[in-house]
Write a protein that binds this DNA or RNA. Structure first.
Lengths: 122, 122
DNA sequence: CTGTATCCCCTCTGATACTG
DNA sequence: CAGTATCAGAGGGGATACAG
């Protein structure tokens, strides 16, 4: 398990970092309305954009979990069931993410080098 | 010149991305009060944390410029003088960055894997 | 169904030396 | 003064196959 130990220069860098992953904003967006199973998240993301691999989805979810933005609950069943839910910690960050969404929507569209495959996502 | 052409999945990812650089928050913070020369930025950052190299400072500044967060003005003199200033575009993002600063200060301190060398920065 | 194990590429970051 | 050139290491991201 790759443990994150980073030396940041300040709080902004740290905050940016926990959101900086190829699929994290999308995952957090997918979970906005409640709990989802692993496969449901996978399905949600596939609706937005070309497939994320199980490997990457697992990694991003583990990092979000390590950073305390989601909780992972495993049900000891066969076949296995694993559910993911946003934490209060992330809920407190969510308004800021929403502002980033609005800012990006207004200021990034049409930027050079900017292209977005998402349909209506986070 | 490494041109940024990325396919984002949504506005949040795009917004996070333009702030995601090892020295960008610090640079933007250093420029908060007005225009600075290349060497002055270098000096500011050295006051916060172990030295950034000229190479990295140049790269981060170029990316910030490409993303329209700073402007670079070259004076054709000898020895050369180059000045950097925040753009209105970044000023419009600054309130959000400030919120990220506050959130990080409150929620990242004491986090596992979190350590900060900065003294009182962005 | 929910992941691991491998392998590989590419970008980011950094150290060091050099230049108009 | 304000950068480039070069080399190198670490890790993020992805394709594919396999497993409990």
């Amino acid at each position: 398990m790759p443990m994150r130990r980073k030396n940041y220069h300040g709080p902004v860098e740290a905050t940016v970092d926990i959101l900086a992953g190829r699929w994290k904003p999308l995952i957090l967006w997918a979970l906005r309305d409640g709990t989802l199973r692993f496969g449901q998240i996978e399905e949600e993301l596939s609706a937005y954009t070309p497939n994320i691999t199980k490997r990457m989805l697992t990694r991003q979810l583990r990092e979000l979990e390590n950073d305390g933005l989601v909780v992972r609950k495993v049900y000891p069943e066969v076949p296995p069931r694993v559910e993911y839910t946003l934490t209060e910690r992330y809920r407190s960050l969510m308004p800021i993410v929403k502002l980033m969404y609005e800012w990006g929507k207004e200021h990034m569209a049409g930027q050079i080098g900017y292209e977005c495959d998402g349909k209506r996502t986070g």
